[in-house]
Amino acid sequence: MDSYPPFQKMYSTLFQDQHKLNHEPVVQELELPLIDLDQLKTGGRRREDCLRAIGKASSEWGFFQVVNHGISSDLLKRMRSEQAKVFGLPFEKKANEKLIDFSTNTYRWGAPSATSLQQLSWSEAFHIPLTKCSESKIQHNTLRRTIDEYAAAVSDLAQKLAHLLAENLGFMRTSYFAQNCGSSSCYLRLNRYPPCPIASEICGLISHTDSDFLTILHQDQVGGLQLKKDGKWVTVKPNDKALIVNIGDLFQAWSNNAYKSVEHRVIANKEVERFSVAFFLCPSYDTIIRSCREPVIYRQFSFGEFRQQVQEDVRNTGHKIGLARFLA
């Protein structure tokens, strides 16, 4: 039985649409700014240089990659192996049984509300709230242990990076992220992008910005991640030793536009499947987001208000509007 979702059957009417997806031209393949987190341990000038490099990348790219990040290569390999196993199960088994009983709608694929190919993502995912890890009823014990271990490690890294980004703006002892971005609000997403026979007409993941503070991504070497740089799409060159970090909408608002939440997407591949796992540093819905500098660019808002507005915009217009709704 096929493990891939039935995209063409489910969305057959969309494939008859004459307005096919027209990918904007890509300039080139580039390496993201590379940050060696070991520099933070030395103190002094090297630590200051590392902080500045993180701030510069977050301002100019909205993305950077980190090495010596504290998550072992063994754990990353095990995470990749376990998610390949669970995604490799027959589609009907994934869709109808509680293989990973974290929450309702754990397993997701495609885009149920899509009305055009521009709104359809050729991918599938397991959405895993961190609070549900210890409560889960995963039928695969090695997957559960690996997810628990990975979630703990990447959560620590995310908190560390958020603190460094705040410190770079002059906030030396902020406990804001530790207080507001705990396991009750953060989550993992395991992703698979199946081979796509119409890769030139569709995205693996449609263009978007992330709605969190920051995202940490571990991807394989297939590639396909693209981001907007100076108004043009560039392809991110994979680095098997690095994790990718990108700024989300909330950090752009919190930093008063010092850091940028950048539009990105995943291009579908006609021949091979791609895997990735993403961690999202999110606050609770009642957390108030205030710009940290004057004059403020964005009015204050709660994360719940932001999420509700995004969902309404997607439902009504077919796309996310995001921070433009919250200008002061």
Results as ranks from 00 to 15, higher is better:
Gln8Lys: 15
Met10Thr: 15
Met10Ser: 12
Thr13Met: 10
Leu14Cys: 07
Phe15Trp: 11
Asp17Glu: 12
Asn22Ser: 11
Asn22Lys: 15
His23Arg: 13
Glu24Leu: 13
Pro25Asp: 09
Glu29Ser: 15
Glu29Trp: 01
Glu29Ile: 09
Leu30Gln: 13
Leu32Gln: 05
Gln39Gly: 14
Leu40Thr: 01
Leu40Gln: 03
Thr42Pro: 00
Arg47Pro: 04
Arg47Ser: 14
Asp49Ser: 10
Arg52Gly: 08
Val66Pro: 11
Lys85Asn: 09
Leu89Pro: 07
Pro90Cys: 03
Lys94Ile: 00
Ala95Leu: 08
Ile100His: 05
Ile100Trp: 11
Asp101Ala: 13
Thr106Asp: 07
Thr106Gln: 05
Thr106Leu: 05
Tyr107Gly: 05
Trp109Pro: 00
Gly110Thr: 04
Ser123Pro: 00
Asn141Glu: 13
Asn141Gly: 06
Thr146Asp: 07
Ala151Ile: 01
Ala152Ile: 12
Asp156Ala: 14
Leu157Arg: 00
Ala158Tyr: 03
Ala158Arg: 00
Glu167Lys: 14
Asn168Arg: 09
Phe171Pro: 02
Cys181Glu: 06
Tyr187Gln: 04
Leu188Cys: 07
Arg192Val: 04
Lys228Asn: 08
Trp233Leu: 11
Pro238Ser: 12
Leu243Gly: 03
Asn257Val: 02
Glu263Gln: 13
Asn269Trp: 01
Ala278Asp: 00
Phe279His: 10
Leu281Arg: 04
Leu281Asp: 04
Pro283Met: 01
Arg290His: 13
Arg293Ile: 00
Glu294Gln: 15
Arg299Leu: 04
Phe301Asn: 03
Ser302Met: 04
Phe306Leu: 07
Gln308Trp: 09
Gln309Gly: 06
Gln311Leu: 13
Thr317Asp: 07
Ile321His: 11
Gly322Tyr: 01
Ala324Thr: 11
Leu327Phe: 09
Ala328Trp: 05
